[in-house]
Design a protein around this nucleic acid. Sequence first.
DNA 1: TATGTTTTTATCGTTTATCGTTAAATTTTA
DNA 2: TAAAATTTAACGATAAACGATAAAAACATA
Lengths: 69, 69
Amino acid sequence: MGKIVLRLDRMMVERKISLNDLAEQVGISNVNLSKIKNNKVTAIRFSTLAAICKVLKCDAGDILEYVEE
Amino acid sequence: MGKIVLRLDRMMVERKISLNDLAEQVGISNVNLSKIKNNKVTAIRFSTLAAICKVLKCDAGDILEYVEE
DNA sequence: TATGTTTTTATCGTTTATCGTTAAATTTTA
DNA sequence: TAAAATTTAACGATAAACGATAAAAACATA
């Protein structure tokens, strides 16, 4: 079964930003951002996703990906 | 403040599929899919998003978009 | 090796919000 | 008009984000 995967790494490397800094700028805890980054969440609030997109200056598609089986 | 918007319309038109049919194939209620389609939700489960992507044969970025202020 | 920094993992509790169901309202189609 | 499709509303049950804290692991630097 296909699934949605989160890929923050690429944009974080591109923006040269650490997890702690990104978490602070996004406005969520570094613990929670770590979970998001490592696909340990099964859903996401749009407010959180939008905040990430804003800080990373990217689109949702740059972070969320559908990968089929 | 930027936000995430859902755009199912385009792909639904492209795939020529009705809301009721899509809901059934995706495996969620038509009521809930209607909410998703009309941006009446503030979060989404990846299982739901993946199922939509699968049926519509598209990527997450085709459905989710970050639009800034 | 030792020390400090960053990231990840693990619990736990609170809060948010999906999703289903039912029913009603609205819009679309014929 | 009538039927079908879509949207809206209200409610409850359940799933899961998210925060806080602490601990562990990974990483870096000297």
